[in-house]
């Protein structure tokens, strides 16, 4: 197979991809939490007993960023798709 890129460039692209995965997931989680957080603070001000459930709801979108992180970890550590196409 023809050599299309050197290992350094591809590794760099992988790192950029990993960064984007975590960063964009983080933004998504943040946007999700924004509305919930505001609503929870409002409810807790009225009824402090709701804190636990509110916390629970607020933390739901947190999982999103973990998905992003899982993808980056796989990209950085566990995936070697270019082993055949890079210069040795």
């Amino acid at each position: 197979m023809a050599v299309v890129a050197d290992a350094g460039t591809l590794y760099g692209l992988l790192a950029v991809g990993a960064g984007l995965a975590t960063g964009l997931a983080g933004i998504g989680a943040g946007v999700g939490e924004q509305g919930i957080g505001a609503a929870v603070v409002g409810v807790v001000a009225e009824e402090p007993g709701f804190l636990g459930k509110g916390l629970f709801l607020m933390l739901l979108p947190e999982t999103l960023i973990i998905f992003g992180l899982a993808v980056s970890l796989i990209l950085m550590f566990a995936w070697t798709p270019f082993s055949g196409i890079v210069t040795p």
Partner: peptide
Amino acid sequence: VSNLISYLRLLA
């Protein structure tokens, strides 16, 4: 599945 992946936060 997402429940389990969620535990990656322990590492992250």
